[in-house]
Design a protein around this nucleic acid. Structure first.
Lengths: 359, 359
DNA sequence: TTGTAAGCGTTATCAC
DNA sequence: GTGATAACGCTTACAA
């Protein structure tokens, strides 16, 4: 019931045309269509276009329609950078994981992304590798983009990193590990309990000799250490070790068992590996040496990968519900983002030992 | 040799203190440390801080040092949003892949990320899934963040998507497929040639009966179609088909062979799968049915995954150099970004058939 | 070497 | 329901 369309269409033509305004000067002619341009075409001001986009109910249907047309015509794509700067909300969520080629993290992030995206947020993903010092620089780089929230893998962060995070004043979720003193939210499981549970499982099965094959990451080491300690407490035996500095691979697994046998005096027993990939390697190496699995060498992995039930024999492993971490992390962050609620801040999702033929 | 530090320190104190300036009004007290604040602390203007950060050589060592201290003291983190808005360069590169849990794409992106990050760019990663219509919305969402460049997986995009991309005026690289009419750059291999090569390989090996097991993605279907056509041309036989709408899984592979045998009248021969995961499933299903591999059922996969050499028998597969795609894509984009050069726009990285025990 | 002024394209806050 | 106007925190001329 406001001024009819023709009137506004006129307004679009008067005094606003490029030729009778002071020359724009300097800057290159066009860096993309702006709300200004869309508004001009639709015969409304830039602000109205902004409103039309953010809350259509605040704009008359007729105006709305003309704006829609103008957008379609110009191929206008909003500038989220400008929007974020003006509103202090970027609708960006940072996610830092050690590695994306590791299915374990990939599937967690996949679930996290799905959850977060449904609420209109976009993910900025980076790999930290397994070196803690790199994390600091990455966190700084991400914070400079002013994310509305951040997901971090693990609970060990440099003092400076914590300070930056706290200073940013955004919700943070630490995943894949558990702690009593999270920066903010925490969704994970206990690596120490995992190691102990596996040791108990092995000891209960009657094993009296053990070895571990582990990749370089700190959490894996913690599982191995807890395993070793508990296994010694239960059996008096000290587990032989084959540790690799780098990321796990099937190759490492083969070499790991070889090293256990040739350099560490491992003469059979149970081998706990920091991942199913390593476990698969150990399995293959054992078989290629004519060692019976699980008779002479029993193998236990970690992560319950897709292939683990299907090797021969299937790999006994520790299962954690990867997507659940992602979902819980997304839920927690979104709650903070929307309500600012502070309910449960630490969620222990636990783990489960999956017995299969290899042990 | 300019005005000594004390002088400037004084300046920091005169007429710039909060109490004798017009009250900032409205806005919440502090939304984060700004260059302005850092400058005030260091006794210089905001611009000088900007310069210190972007090109230290333009600032005197003494000033530089005081700015450094002020930054340290305040915990200043630059606002890249504002920077990007002002300079029209976001130092953001978008990457769209079908799935991050698929190692094939993950390792490509890992290489791409490493390359791009070294030049100071950050990646915004999203999963498109395998539905083309979703891509359009994702591309729009990414473009709204004003990335400096974009990586797309595949060569089939909606008209609207192409228009948006062209309109954005940024370098674009399409990976993982090949075409004569790329949007901009293209790094990939021919899925049709791949299918044909596998058919030739199978026919040369004496196979006269064939089946295919394929996941839902379009490129996989194209490989399968090319295989089927060429195999028919060579042998006169039509390959039996088991097609799955969703993403590949080991389970699908098992069911695929079952379906081939029970519903499609497949009585043995060669089975070409759209991924090694499927091939592994076929392998397992064949063995669990007491069928000899490769004697009764020969299996060929695609992607040369980590585990493929280690199954029993090892999986014959098609290898593509995943990291190479990422590297080449990064190189191409960076060249555009830096020089704007337009040299080779289409790079065919080819593929290689890796014969193993399964065929 | 340093500072001033004018944007960048939005959103937020008021008026009307 | 719509429009001015002032931020948002930077970068880019241009001046000193």
């Amino acid at each position: 019931m406001n001024s009819p369309a023709p009137d506004r269409m006129m307004r679009a033509m008067d005094g606003k045309d490029d030729h009778d305004r002071p020359a724009p000067a300097k800057r290159p002619a066009s860096r993309g269509v702006t709300m200004e341009a869309v508004g001009r075409l639709a015969g409304v001001s830039q602000v109205t276009v902004s409103r039309a986009l953010s809350d259509p109910s605040k704009v008359s249907p007729a105006t709305m329609e003309r704006i829609r047309e103008a957008i379609e015509l110009t191929g206008y794509v909003p500038n989220a950078l400008a929007g974020a700067l003006a509103s202090s909300r970027s609708r960006l969520v940072s996610a830092l994981v050690p590695s994306i080629t590791n299915v374990v993290y990939a599937s967690m992030i996949q679930a996290f992304g799905a959850g977060i995206r449904d609420s209109g947020y976009q993910i900025m993903l980076s790999e930290t590798g397994f070196a803690p010092q790199d994390e600091e620089a990455l966190v700084a780089a991400h914070l400079s983009r002013r994310p509305d929230a951040m997901l971090l893998t693990g609970i060990h962060h440099s003092a400076r990193t914590r300070r930056m995070l706290l200073g940013a004043g955004i919700p943070v979720v630490e995943v894949w590990d558990i702690t009593d003193s999270p920066i903010d939210l925490c969704v994970g499981f206990s690596h120490i309990e995992t190691g102990r549970a596996v040791a108990d499982y092995a000891a209960d099965a009657g094993h009296r000799r053990a070895g571990v094959v582990s990749a370089g990451d700190e959490r894996a080491r913690r599982r191995m250490a807890a395993f070793t300690e508990r296994f010694r407490a239960r059996t008096g035996a000290t587990a032989a070790q084959a540790l690799f500095p780098a990321q796990a691979s099937l190759e490492c697994g083969r070499e790991g068992l070889a090293r256990l046998i040739e350099a560490e005096g491992f003469t059979g027993g149970v081998v706990f590996c920091s991942s199913d990939l390593l476990a698969h390697g150990v399995l293959i190496e054992a078989q290629s040496r004519g060692l019976d699995v699980p008779g002479e060498v029993a193998v236990i992995g970690f992560g319950d990968q897709d292939f683990s039930p299907w090797t021969s024999p299937g790999i006994t492993t520790v299962r954690v519900d990867r997507p659940a971490f992602g979902h819980a992390a997304a839920r927690g962050l979104l709650a903070r983002l929307q309500g600012g609620s502070a309910e449960t801040t630490v969620i222990d999702l636990g783990f489960e030992i999956v017995p299969r033929g290899s042990s």
